[in-house]
Design a protein around this nucleic acid. Structure first.
Lengths: 178, 178
DNA sequence: CTCTTGTTTCTCTAAATACAGAATTTTCAG
DNA sequence: CTGAAAATTCTGTATTTAGAGAAACAAGAG
């Protein structure tokens, strides 16, 4: 990891590990971490050198990150090469990630469960199965709704809500676990 | 998948797929789905037959699910074998999963970032890096806080909050994205 | 038009992970 | 205690995924 301080290395390595647990390729996560820390956009060649991975690997990983929408292609004046920079606003970044995960995980599951329950009556559906699937559906619909609401709230207000220190729900009389 | 209806198969297969995206082994996820749908606890042998995987595989997967805390070992009267059942309450189940993920992913990251920022002054830390890491820390601390608050709210009240239909935040004057 | 520089795609290898089956250990009935 | 049933652990194989390097392709500059 040529040219990186120990702290930078530490963070990039950890981000790579975390990525793995999220079903995100290690190199992809590392590149993201690198771009996040850098003060200026890097080109693919630079990334290759710093992380010491193959050029092709960088190419594919970058495409993946662009699909997620959390890095951006920029052109520097007088330089023909593509340069890349990460979104800087962390809150915005995770907002995107969360929405993307919703789209890739929650939505398809909702669809499958609904289809399972919509079975044409001829295909007898076992009572227990039906009951369980309905409970599951209920949960996913709740999650979807909360997700949607959360996404409408600005970061600023989210912080305010958090600062209410457990109070947000209390104010609404919604706090105690029953 | 001997003895399962098409609907049951469909759900189990899908759950297996989803698991993969969450960094959870396919068999593990399938066993969980199976136990979730079943009206009674199954023993390892039965699981082996239904899902058609090796006995050892079932053994390991079950341990994993127990670590997550979402399946339970039960003994049936007059049967020496271990039987397993899934938690039935979906909300409770995801509460556990979420907490577990927090413990495994959020907490370690918080620790790493803090350690990165706590660097003894001798190890000069680059200004941009510092700034970015601080932003990241801020976000994770916010997430931690919101998580904690969410966990204190009962499912019942969560549903009520969702039913306020985007109203929860509005009531608090927190809605508009600015 | 063509040469250079940059980028992507393809193919092959290496590494990690999942899994089957055998071997071992544990548990309990008698 | 002993033997049979059950469960776990171990070991080797297969599948999957990551990634390197070569080759093909694209886009200007001159």
């Amino acid at each position: 990891m040529k040219g990186l301080s120990p702290v930078q290395q530490r963070f990039i390595l950890h981000w790579g590990e975390m990525g793995a647990r999220w079903g995100i390729n290690r190199t992809v996560a590392q590149i993201h971490a690198l771009l996040f820390l850098m003060a200026r956009p890097l080109n693919a060649e630079e990334i290759t050198e710093v992380l010491d991975v193959a050029r092709s690997n960088v190419s594919n990983s970058i495409r993946e990150l662009q699909n997620w929408g959390i890095i951006r292609l920029v052109h520097l004046p007088g330089d023909r090469r593509d340069h890349f920079e990460s979104l800087k606003d962390v809150n915005e970044m995770f907002r995107i990630i969360l929405n993307e995960r919703k789209r890739r995980e929650l939505d398809p599951t909702l669809r499958v469960i609904r289809e399972c329950l919509d079975q044409p009556a001829k295909e007898e559906i076992d009572a227990t199965t039906k009951e369980r699937l309905e409970a599951m559906l209920g949960f996913f619909e709740l999650a979807e709704k909360l997700f949607g609401q959360l996404d409408k709230v600005s970061t600023k207000n989210l912080i305010r809500a958090a600062k209410m220190g457990g109070g947000m729900f209390r104010v609404l009389g919604l706090t105690s676990k029953e």
